[in-house]
């Protein structure tokens, strides 16, 4: 077998071990899955009445935003899991084995895809219960889900790098909250960014959380179109004009650029940081 095949096999062995852990401590998973359900219900019923989206119900519009927020927050799980491993004796065992140096991180980011699939499934079911529907074809919807998963996978690698640099579960949990919270709120995930004050609006337009949300909305058929907004305005309804930033008019391409960019930078950085932390 080639070295790359072995690296994949090592990563698989580690991923399998992480998944066994989820199976043994199901309480953890249950609590983590509860939060997206809570978010769906809170936003739909608390803010739902106050926010108008031209031509689309807020409930349907919101769900993709919750998806994006949840998968970004899910990367914290990757960071915390790795930090926990780094703090424990098991990491010395891994380091003393002739396994691939990337396996610990590759395995963790891979097992967290499974976790993200689970959480997106739970959220989709909750969404369907409160009235969310997909209005496009199966391939388009599948592309929407895949893009969300790819985005979360890329974010996991950022958190993997952070965990290598700061191997402490508490610090990771608190620090990532401080970064991810504004990142997901200054976006179009919950509220249309067209209503933001100008500087925030520019940030939100180019924020990849906005583009992945926009891409998912487009692919699920939950987004207002420029034509429908123009029609509404022509008939005298007072609605905001949609942002025409390139990132939002080409959200799939812009999101893919981010995904590739993050992976190109953070995969080698994380693996190097792991290797380095191993011999200090």
């Amino acid at each position: 077998m080639s070295e790359l095949t072995w690296a994949a096999a090592d990563g698989y062995a580690v991923a399998r071990r992480n998944l066994i852990k989820i199976k043994r401590v199901p309480e953890l998973l249950i609590w983590i899955l509860m939060s997206p359900i809570m978010f769906v219900l809170l936003f739909v019923y608390v803010f739902g009445g106050a926010i108008d989206i031209p031509g689309v119900s807020y409930r349907e519009w919101l769900i993709a935003g919750i998806f994006a927020q949840t998968v970004v927050f899910g990367s914290t799980f990757t960071g915390a899991g790795l930090a926990e491993d780094m703090e424990k004796g098991i990491i010395d065992r891994f380091r003393s084995l002739p396994m691939s140096r990337s396996a610990v991180i590759v395995g963790r980011t891979a097992s967290d895809i499974v976790y993200n699939v689970l959480s997106i499934t739970i959220m989709s079911l909750t969404g369907l219960l409160v009235g969310w529907r997909i209005h496009t074809s199966v391939p388009e919807a599948a592309a929407g889900f895949l893009l969300l998963l790819a985005f979360s996978y890329a974010f996991s690698w950022i958190m993997a790098w952070v965990a290598m640099k700061i191997p402490s579960v508490e610090v990771i949990n608190n620090a990532s909250f401080m970064v991810i919270m504004p990142l997901t709120f200054i976006s179009n995930a919950f509220v249309p960014l067209e209503t933001f004050p100008a500087p925030l609006q520019v940030f939100a337009e180019w924020n990849p959380v906005s583009s992945v949300t926009q891409a998912a909305r487009d692919l699920f058929g939950n987004a207002p179109t420029a034509e429908s907004v123009a029609q509404l305005q022509a008939s005298g309804v007072d609605v905001f004009t949609l942002s025409d930033a390139w990132s939002l008019t080409h959200p799939v391409a812009y999101t893919l650029l981010w995904i590739v960019g993050i992976l190109v930078v953070f995969v080698p950085l994380s693996v190097r940081a792991y290797r380095h932390s191993a011999t200090k």
Partner: peptide, 8 residues
């Protein structure tokens, strides 16, 4: 079993 697999 995990260790054995990682020893390939």
């Amino acid at each position: 079993d995990l260790i054995g697999r990682l020893y390939r």
